[in-house]
Amino acid sequence: MKFGILVNEGPYTHQASDSAYEFAKAAIEKGHEIFRVFFYHDGVNNGTSLAVPPQDDRHIPNQWSELAKDHSVDLVLCVAAAQRRGMLDEDEAKRNGKTSHNVAEGFRISGLGQLIEAGIQADRMVVFGD
């Protein structure tokens, strides 16, 4: 079965991203496909390449990056939400005249249409938020 996942909250403050990650891992282990994980609202902050959590804590952005690498999961940050919150990839940074960019490996920035498409294509959409 194909799952779509929506993550509405950023890392650490809320459990939403951790819950979504555990769900995605369990689904993949059971042989399901994760069609896409879409990050919206503060959820876009899960895609930062600049997080430096304490050594003894989980590294949430890295966990997602590894999941994307190991299982080719499509991780999409909403562009409108990302721009508001200072999450830019190289292209977006250039276009907006910024000198740095901060999107972690495995994440890409795209439009809200990707969320609707996930809703259409996936057999089930599961939402994690506050």
Binding site: H41, L112, I120
Partner: peptide
């Protein structure tokens, strides 16, 4: 919170998908 506004933004995009 921003949820109402960003929900509305999704709805406006969704309208283009003929769902």
């Amino acid at each position: 919170t921003i949820y109402a506004l960003e929900s509305l933004e999704v709805v406006l995009i969704a309208a283009a998908f003929d769902q």
